[in-house]
Simulated assay, not measured.
Amino acid sequence: MKLEEKLQILRKKNGYSQEQLADKLGIARQTISKWENGQAIPELNGLIALSKLYGIAIDRIVKDDDECNLPIYKGAEIDINEMISFLIYAKKNTYPINGNKVASSRTKSHDYSYSENGYKYLDTYLGGEKFSGSEAVWYLDKPIWSMNYAGRITGDFFDNDFLKEALLSVSADAPYRGPKIFVKGDYHYHCKVEGEFVWFQGYEEIFYLKEKIYECYFHGGVIS
Rank of each mutant, 00 (worst) to 15 (best):
N100A: 11
I88N: 01
S17I: 07
A22S: 14
M147N: 07
F86E: 02
Y189M: 03
D66Y: 13
G220Y: 05
E215V: 10
G155K: 06
I41N: 12
T94M: 07
W138V: 03
N160E: 14
Q39A: 11
T154G: 11
C191P: 01
K74P: 00
L122S: 09
I41G: 01
L122V: 14
Q39L: 14
I41W: 13
N93Q: 13
L25V: 01
S113F: 06
E116F: 15
G46T: 02
G118H: 08
M1R: 06
F218L: 09
I61Y: 11
H188R: 12
D65M: 11
K74D: 07
V198L: 02
K120Y: 14
N98R: 15
K24V: 07
Y73Q: 07
I56K: 05
M83R: 10
G99H: 06
S105P: 00
L70I: 08
G46A: 08
H188Y: 12
Y89G: 00
H188S: 06
R152S: 14
V198S: 06
S113G: 01
K210W: 15
A76H: 07
V183M: 15
I206P: 03
L3K: 03
I48L: 15
N98E: 14
G221P: 03
K101F: 11
H188L: 12
F197G: 03
F157K: 13
P71M: 10
R152M: 14
L7G: 02
A166R: 04
K74N: 07
K142T: 14
H188G: 00
A150S: 13
K184R: 12
E116Y: 15
I223E: 00
D66K: 10
E4A: 07
K210D: 15
G178P: 06
G46Y: 06
T124E: 07
H190P: 00
A136D: 08
Y187K: 03
Y114E: 02
Y54L: 02
S146E: 13
K13S: 05
L25M: 10
D66C: 01
D66R: 08
K91W: 12
N160M: 13
S115F: 05
Y217C: 01
D65Y: 15
S132K: 10
S109I: 05
V102L: 07
K164W: 08
K24E: 15
L21F: 06
D161T: 14
N45K: 15
K142D: 09
L50A: 03
K108E: 10
G133H: 02
L47R: 08
S132W: 05
Y114L: 03
D66N: 03
P175R: 05
